[in-house]
Design a binder for these strands. Structure first.
Lengths: 210, 210
DNA sequence: CCTTAATTCCCCTCTTTGGGGGATGGTTTG
DNA sequence: CAAACCATCCCCCAAAGAGGGGAATTAAGG
């Protein structure tokens, strides 16, 4: 049984997809949300599905940004885009952020179910018109993730990753604890994390600090 | 100018050493404590000296345990043991924990000052009777740091190192947040850290988690 | 010159954490 | 069998954290 959650702002279509998912033998819809934040809260409470069906045009966080956030919660999540946008930029952004497939809303129900199963098995399902555009990307890609931290932020991230608390960092750098708090807030925003442990993990694993 | 702090429980001898340190041109005593905990608090408030003069027989945390704790605060600290104990076990323990020298209390003042300076420059000063015993250690050493975490604790440490908070961990493992809190408390004790960030850093850097 | 980015500091509030107890079963092991 | 360890859950409470706001200064760049 594959647990599926849906993030789609249009109520009618969301309910339709929910019914479709639950109508399949191997699929179960364990959550349906109208925006990414609600879905993120759901995940952060420990509810981890097998796959996320994700729209792009959403109130608040866009689906593209959502991909990054969801994968930060659990890097093993499978995210399948389900949207009407078939322009190259969005497809490119979704895939480089880690989506496991990209199907359009005009896809027939049977094929949507197949795609969900395919994606959850490690496949990479695309709608035909999307597949064409995907091929072009296989001629030159690359990225540079740096998060754009300032030098002071890097310095504080280093100390934070040594396990120092705000007070100790402030003492070490001869600045106010308020300033440290501000820097840390900005660091969390840039790294898209919520907490010193998460920032530390990301910083060390990605070599941002020694 | 080399900043020195002293951890020594005997008031008279502590004051004597303090005077001795301050009498030297290049040395300044920026703190003198009767036990390790007070010194640790001092360090954790951001006051990092260049060198720590440390006794072994102390109320509360022993000087040997203190070495580990001090180096956890700052791995670059230089710790020079100043004690009456010259038995091989204590010497061995001090050095394997990371002390940068081991001198006895019967050492004359001039030699103590020289040892402090020597240690702060990267040397490894020993009293003669200690030096003899040190040589024996150069025939076979090694250690296994495992912290002796239970499997459940390892599991929780892994999640903690992914940046999950207690609530999320509890949800993921289907146990109470209170239980998670207890495990985390025990993990911190075993790793000798105080906080999720510090535990995460230690766990990742030492390969306890993936 | 104006705008932006960086650094610094302060206020507020709510949630989370850390550390201290203690308690109950279950398992292992000497 | 007693002792030790483990995993589970509970209470309390002070401290710290996270996230929101605003604001001043300085440096850098278009």
């Amino acid at each position: 049984m594959i647990d599926v959650i849906i993030v789609e702002d249009q109520t009618l279509y969301r309910d339709e997809i929910k019914r479709l998912i639950n109508s399949a033998d191997d699929l179960k819809c364990t959550g349906a949300f109208s925006n990414c934040q609600e879905a993120l809260d759901f995940l952060n409470d420990g509810n981890i599905p097998d796959i996320i069906l994700l729209d792009i045009k959403l109130p608040g966080l866009s689906g593209l940004e959502g991909i990054s956030r969801f994968l930060e919660v659990d890097e093993n999540l499978v995210i399948l885009m389900l949207t009407i946008h078939d322009d190259s930029e969005k497809i490119y952004s979704a895939l480089t952020r880690g989506a496991h497939g990209y199907i359009l809303k005009n896809t027939e129900g049977k094929r949507i179910i197949e795609s969900v199963i395919e994606a959850s098995k490690g496949g990479l399902p695309f709608s035909p018109s999307v597949a064409l555009k995907v091929q072009q990307f296989f001629i030159g890609s690359k990225e540079d993730e740096k998060y754009n931290l300032s030098s002071r932020e890097m310095e504080i991230l280093q100390l934070l990753s040594n396990g120092l608390k705000k007070k100790a960092i402030a003492g070490r750098l001869f600045i106010s604890i308020e300033t440290v708090a501000t820097h840390i807030k900005n660091i969390y925003k840039k790294l898209h994390v919520h907490g010193a442990a998460a920032a530390t993990a990301k910083a060390i694993r990605e070599g941002l600090v020694k």
